[in-house]
């Protein structure tokens, strides 16, 4: 792997250079919370932050998007596909957990058989420059889900904060090309030693809690267990966890029409909502919070392993810090993992 360095004081210039050629999204503060937004200059970009409240998934799966639009005349209907040309795009300062979430979304939307062309068009132009975590939060558990505070999976370049400078780890060819264009300096031996120290120190702060394969087995055996009811009792089915989650991707498709002109829209949806699975007959296979929360857990920690060979959670902790009733996914998992009851079939 190649390692470059850049002074922290040079980051603004670095960004302003990139802005000339690319669309860039970076963490900025807005109404007292950190969000990822497209930026026009390096002003206001913050790199000392824990993580954004909303995940950056919106850049590949926007909350609303028009799939097709149409207008109807006397006897003809014109249907138009909305596949806009996408400009090269850099996601700057994403956390490693969020970078990994893009790999997960790729598995869902870019499968061979039913490739989602809207997703692919957006995803193809994304280059991710992520920022390793020197100070993991109390809610972070990325190491449990297969990642880590300096995991490079999903990133093209990864920045490591070593004090006055960042080391830039060059992960992919795409990343290498960009670095070459910018003519960055190679990292020195002592800088690399400092990088290793920083990484080790941070990793020690979040050791994995559970073993994922064992967890899957336990979950598969606990589907009908009585634990679910007690563990999920306080869930409000508000859907906040799913909206903020970087890997949650469920959506609805609806038509909106006015004056014989209309659009077919894709819009985020949530498995936590009762109507999500309600059939036209009135039958609902997941009628209460219990079945719906169970679906969220089973989907991420069992079904995704079967289908994509990857857990559907990157351990970002958003669903823990933002849940209005403090339902902690780690506690649920741990309880199920160690529960005597869930040993039953």
């Amino acid at each position: 792997m190649d390692y470059k360095t850049i002074k922290k004081s040079e980051i603004t210039e670095f960004l302003d250079n990139l802005i000339k050629e690319y669309e860039i999204a970076a963490p900025i503060e807005k109404d007292d919370i950190v969000v990822f937004d497209k930026i026009k200059s390096s002003n206001g970009v913050i790199l000392e932050y824990s993580n954004s409240v909303k995940s950056p998934k919106k850049f590949v799966i926007p909350q609303f998007e028009t799939l097709i639009s149409y207008n109807t005349n006397e006897d003809t209907t014109n249907v138009k596909e909305h596949l806009d040309e996408q400009k090269q795009f850099i996601l700057f300062g994403a956390r490693p957990c969020d970078a990994r979430s893009f790999l997960f979304l790729d598995k869902v939307f870019s499968d061979e058989k039913n490739r989602d062309i809207y997703y692919k068009n957006r995803r193809d132009v994304v280059l991710i420059i992520s920022l390793g975590c020197t100070q993991p939060q109390e809610t972070c558990f990325c190491t449990t889900t297969g990642g880590g505070p300096f995991s490079s999976e999903g990133s093209d370049l990864l920045l490591v904060d070593i004090g006055d400078d960042y080391i830039i780890q060059v992960i992919t060819d795409k990343g290498a090309e960009l670095v070459k264009k910018l003519g960055l300096k190679n990292a020195q031996k002592d800088e690399l030693a400092e990088m290793d120290r920083v990484i080790k120190k941070s990793e020690a702060k979040i050791e994995p809690d559970l073993e994922l394969n064992n967890l899957k087995d336990k979950l598969d055996n606990s589907f009908d267990g009585s634990d679910w009811e007690t563990l999920t009792e306080k869930c409000l089915s508000c859907g906040v966890c799913t909206y903020l989650c970087p890997t949650c991707h469920c959506f609805d498709i609806v038509d909106e029409e006015k004056n014989r002109k209309g659009e077919r829209i894709r819009i985020w949806d949530s498995c936590q909502f009762p109507h999500f699975t309600m059939q036209a007959s009135g039958f609902n296979p997941r009628p209460t919070y219990k079945e719906r929360y169970r679906q969220r857990i089973m989907h991420k920690f069992s079904y995704c392993i079967d289908n994509y060979n990857m857990v559907g959670c990157v351990g970002c902790g958003r669903c823990i810090s933002e849940c209005p009733v403090n339902l902690d996914i780690r506690q649920v998992l741990t309880s199920l993992y160690y529960s005597m009851l869930s040993g039953r079939t």
Partner: peptide, 24 residues
Amino acid sequence: LEMKMKCGIGKCGRCNIGSKYVCT
């Protein structure tokens, strides 16, 4: 089988029974 469906191509996430998608 019948389930509530939207995308029909295993993406929108609503028609699964366990790890199987009824639509695909």
